[in-house]
Structures are given as C-alpha cells and as structure tokens.
Write a protein that binds this DNA or RNA. Structure first.
Lengths: 217, 217, 217, 217
DNA sequence: GATGAATGAGTGTTCATTCAT
DNA sequence: AATGAATGAACACTCATTCAT
C-alpha cells in the first residue's frame, strides 16, 4: 500500500513541476510520465485525464481556501445583516468593524496561501486552459455578495434596489481588487510574515479607496 | 488594389475571430485558413509565422497606446520634477494636481481603448503564449517609474534612497492596480462613454487608496 | 516477445528500404510508416526522431567497424613506434611488414563490410543529411594518424617536424585513398570472397603508389 | 538589354551562393529569390525549374571540361592504338610516354578546374539530388575507356578479350582514382599553382600504383 | 498496478511550382 | 520582364488518450 501509492506520489510531484514550469496547456503528459519513470498508461490508471491530474494537485488546497472564505462570509453576513438599514454613523462604525474583521480574515487567508504557496501559484497563474482558469472570477463573485451588503450599509441604502449601475460596477471592481490583493501577495511575497506585513499597507489602500468611493460626489 | 488585398483582409478577420475565441495558443492556423477559404500556403505568403499574424492584428493599436502613455509620462515627469523635495502641503496640492492630470490622461486612454476594443481585448486577455503575453507587466513598469516620483513627493522624501522595502512594494501594487483599472474598464464596459463614467468612481477609489497609504501609520 | 517487436522490426525493415532507395534526406517518415502499416505515432514510440531511426539501423555495424579499426591501430602504433627514427633500410623492411599487416587487417575489414553490406552501403552512400555524413572523413582522419607514422619511418625522418606541406598533402591523399579502396570494394563487389580477391590488386596498386611517392624526386 | 539581364545575373549569383552553402537538395528557390530581391515568378521566367537553374550555373564549365577530356582522349586513342599488340618493352615505353602525356593533360585540367573553381566544387560536391549527381561516375567511364587501352598495352594483351574480371575491376578502380585525384586537388588546393605542385606527387603515386598492378603476381 | 504499444488527429511550417495580370 | 498571389502536397513531429495483457 505504501509501495502502491509511491507511483501516484511521484506522478503528482512531477506533474507539479511540469505544470509549474509550463502552465496547464503547454504541460505534456508524456513528459510528466517520463520524468516520473513510468509509462503514460500508469498515469491513466490513477487519473482520468489531464484535467483530473491537475485537479488532484489543487483540489484539497482549493477546498480549504473555499472553506475559510465561506466560513468568514457566513459570520460576516450575520453581522452585516444586523445593521443594514440603520443610520449612517452606525453604519460607518460597523464598516470600520468590518474592515477590522477583514484584516483578521485576511491574515488567516494569507497564512493559508503561504502554507500552500506552490499549489496556490499553480491555481492562480498556471491554470489557463483548465477548468480552474476562472477561479479568481469565482472568488470575486463570492466576495461581491459580501461587499454588496457592506456597500449598502455604508451608503445608508434601505435595500439592494437602491443600487445604481455605477454602484454595482464599483462594488464589482472593489471585489475584484480585493482578490487581486491576495493574488499579488501570494505571488510577490516570499513568506506569510512578509505577506502580512505588506497587507497592512494594502488594506490601508483598500479602505482609503472604499471611503473615497463612498464619499464621492 | 482593393481586390488584391481581400485575401489578406479575410485572413486577418478570421485570425481575429480564432484568436479571440480560443486564445493565441489554442488558435489553429489551419482553422483560420479553412475559414478564410485559402490554403495554409497563402497565409504564409502574407505572414511570416503565427506570431507575425498575431502581431499584424495588434501592432498598430499597441504602438498607438504606447505613444499616448509615453507622451503623458514625459509631460508628467516635467511637472513632478518641479515639486520633488518641497514641503508636504505643496506636495499634496501638487499630487491633487497630478491626479487631475491622471484623470485627463485616463480619459484619453479610455477613449483609445474603446476605439480599438476588440484588439485591446485580444492583447490583454488572449495573448498568452505569444510575445505579447507580458504586456500588462511592461506597462506596469512604466507606470511605476512615474508613481515612484509621485510617491516620493507626497511622502516628502528628499530622494529615492529614503524608500523602504514596504514603500516600493506598495508603489508596485498601486502601479499594477492602475493598469488593472484600465483593463477592467476595457473588458467590462461596453463603450467609452460608460468607461469614462465608471472611471470617476475608480479614480476616487484610487485616490482614496493613495491617501490611505500615504497617511498610514 | 517475438510478437511484440514485430512492429519495430517492420519499421526498421521499411526504413532500411526507404533510406536505401532515396537517401537520408529524401526518405519520408510518412512513407516508412505507411509501408509498415502503422501510424507515424507508432514510429515515434520506438524512435526519437528521423536521425535516431537511421542511427538504429547503422549504430551496431558502425560500432563494430570502429572497433576493428581501432584495435588494429593500437597494435600498429606499437609496431611503428619501434622503428621511428631508425635507418632507412630497416624502415623499408618494416614498411613492407606494415603493408603485410595492412593486408591482414584489410581482409578482416572486408569480411566485416560484407557481413553488413546493406548497412555499410547505407552509411557510406546514403547518409547525406544525417549526422553520419562525414563518416568517411572521420575514418580518413584515423588512418592519417597511422599513415603519418609510416611515412615518417619510410622517409627516414627523425620527427614529425620534418614533414613538408607536400608530405602532409600526399599523406592525406593516401589516407583518403585507403578508405576509398574499402568503399569501392564494399560498393562494387558482390561478396567478401570477391572483395578479398580484388583487394590484392588494389593493395599492389597502393603499395606501388607509396613507393612511387617515397622515391619521388 | 543590359538591364534585363541584370536580374538573371543576380539570380544566378544568389543561386550560386545558396547551392554552395546548402547543396542542391537543401537549397531553397524562395531563398534565392528573396536574396536576389525578386519574386519566385521572375525566376521561373528565366529558368524552367530548379534543375534548370542549377544547370545554367554549371553547364558551360561542364561543357568545357568535357571538351578538354574528350580532345585529349582522341589524341591518346590514336597514339595507344598504334602500339596495342606490340611487345612489352615498347608498350612500357609507350606507357611511360602515356604518363607523360597524362601529366601534361592533367596540368591543363587542373588549370581549368581552378579557373572555374566555384562551379567545379558545386558540381563535384553539391550536386546530390540533381541530375549531375553522377557526374564523377560519368567521367570515370570516359577515363576507363582510355585506361583500358593503356592497360592492354602494358599487359601485352593482344585484344580486349584477354581482360579478366580482375583486370577490368582494377582498371575501373584506377579510372575512378584518377578522377578522384582531380576532385581531391580541386577541393583541397587553393589555386592552380599549388594544385600542379601537389599533382606531381599524386602522379608519382598513380604511376607507382599502375606498375604495382601491372607487375603483380 | 502498470506496461508496451498504438491511434488518429493534430501542430506549425516549407516546398517547388503556376499563372493571371 | 516581372509581380503578387495562391496552390496542394508534403514535411517532421507531438498530442492526449486507449487498451489488451
């Protein structure tokens, strides 16, 4: 059983290397197998196809990441729900609170990103051509739900219906930017400690940005 | 003369379609030719190779874009030079001025982006595998030079040497974000008018972000 | 096991036929595969590329041939070393001895050439465009080292330094001619027996030629 | 008229360069035209096809060479005819005379070879794939007719019928070698002067070889 | 669990040549 | 005399995948 899994492990290692070096599309199954010292047939015993192989590399990490984000959003949703519709000063306060929470969760995310740095980089920068190529967009969508709530609260809107086209656009952008911040950190910092450090400035940037938007016009 | 170039035009049209649908790497020369109703040999009469074909699609647009940016940076450099090393209130004022200029140039860029929307999208989202795949990074680099000046001025630094590692990191991020704003607009708005409209909020976001960073800690 | 390798064998057979008929350059991989009744992919399972396919056809034979020659040259070197610098009559005697040895080795070479006639012809007359195209020249170089020694001995020179430009030229020619004799036999005789028979006259020619050169002027 | 021929001239120059660098087979018509600054259509106005282009490069030189050789052989034939069937001492004398003549003609040939060195090298070393690839063999055939007469004379045979299989084989070889000597000189010497100089040793080699053969057994 | 063998469709690219204008 | 355009077949090679054993 140890022996059996060794091949699979080797295959995964070599796949990791190949995908990291060449990206999903240019990676060659044959190369991976050659490097692993097995035939292509062996690979197809363990994995359904190229996509499945890539999936095996990233699935766990992705699952964990989704978990963190979702868990956070549930908590957040409860908190934000409470204040939606309240007066603006409270909302602002709550927003500040929201940013504090965000900072806390951001730290957790960053720690997670660096714990799985290799895989995360694979997912974020080498997945083009696979079914994961839209991952950042999917995460943006999740953040967007949350940010929409927060935006409504800060703007003092009574309901979603008050959101203009411009509101929606800038919410989407800020959601996108939030994800981009994580990607930037994951790909530009060398460890969690540095990531957390740089995060502070970036959060200042983002919060400044939010207020800039909220107070605009 | 109009008649002669019909094949080349057809080829370029079909190439545009193929590259747009599949991206540079997955696009098939054969497919393009089949669609255009000519043999592959015909394509190779007009274009040196796949890269050259792609280049013919994007070169002019890219050249024009570079021109706009470079011209802007030269003007900007002159303006920023003047205030580097001055006291902070003036610097802040000048920065505000800088942002106004930025807004003006942004409008010009946006109008250009939408004038060549199709090609711009090709360049920004479908070039992976070609020699243009690093275009956004290259533009970030250019912006970064300019933003470094502005950052120094706003921070009241006497010289580049005062920049910490964290300063440099956040400057790079903000440069990256500036380019990302343009990409976002180009890919999410349907015309220049809408783009310019959304730009206002995004500039508010960015300026808010800058002040958030400058006043941080 | 015999059954498995049938495809490879078929491929090699057909490759042999194609290369022999058309030469390395004009030979078509597709044709070889079509003739063998397999797809081109199958060929590339067994062979790295065109050159490797050709190599598989000739490598063993070439290795064996090199072995014979090198072994001979080592023995010869020892013999020639002994007389270098001695007086001319002894040298001449030794040279005669050298020619006798040459005749012996020639017989061995010829037997080998005919044992692998098909491949030898491939190597000597159909390799243009492959990495083996300079094989005759390489063999000439080897012979030349040996012949230089012999020439020095027969001329009664004390050292290599006494060799004039003309000496070197004629040594190179005679080396070339020696190789050419083997090629001529391999391509003009139908079996080893006939080859050995014709060899006698050719050796008489060559030895006569040597003395003609040595006694010239 | 001057203007018209300029294109053809340019084409021939570039063809010369291309064929010399890559050999007949690997030479590219397109390349030649590109280098000459004309379209492929232009080339096909002047030349029927690739072979014709190559032919235009070498035809004159080849014609001249054939002339020299044929003229020589006619003279020689008359001389040799006379002594065929005579006694051996006279034959030997005549043979010596033959070699003298050979030497004279060789000098003429060499001068011619170097006068057209470029083309000659093309013909002798770069023609593989064209209709001239067997040129050396054709010249060997011509020499062989002549050498057969000389051999008969030197051997004291009464007629061609006395020639054994071995006789014929060695005659063919010596014919081949004679041509090879010219090729060797043309490709290894840098001018006619050096060629003639080296020729002396080579003739000594060849004559020595002939006597070695004649006196063998 | 894994091999060895093979497929079939595909890749981008080059070739000598043709021909209407 | 020469162009610009186009053909059609060919090139060596790579791909992810399959499957009997």
């Amino acid at each position: 059983m140890d022996n059996e899994k060794e091949t699979k492990k080797k295959l995964l290692e070599c796949a990791m290397k190949e995908f990291s070096e060449k990206g999903y599309m240019k990676a060659s199954i044959r190369n991976i197998c050659k490097e692993a010292g097995v035939t292509t047939g062996a690979l197809y015993f363990f994995f359904k196809d190229k996509e499945d192989l890539f999936g095996n590399l990233v699935a766990d990490t992705l699952y964990g990441l989704n978990n963190i984000i979702e868990r956070h959003f549930i908590e957040e949703a409860i908190a934000t729900e409470a204040l939606s519709g309240g007066d603006m000063s409270i909302a602002a306060l709550a927003a500040a609170q929201g940013f504090d929470d965000d900072m806390a969760i951001a730290r957790e995310v960053i720690r997670y990103l660096f714990k799985h740095k290799e895989v995360i980089e694979l997912l974020l920068t080498k997945a083009q051509g696979s079914c994961y190529e839209n991952l950042p967009d999917q995460m943006v969508d999740k953040v967007e739900v949350h940010y929409t709530q927060m935006y409504i609260a800060m703007k003092g809107y009574k309901s979603k219906k008050e959101l203009t086209k411009e509101d929606k656009f800038i919410i989407h952008w800020m959601s996108h930017d939030q994800i981009d911040i994580f990607i930037h950190i994951a790909t530009h910092c060398k460890n969690a400690k540095e990531g957390e450090k740089q995060m502070e400035n970036m959060m200042a940037y983002m919060i400044g940005g939010w207020y800039g938007v909220i107070n605009n016009k």
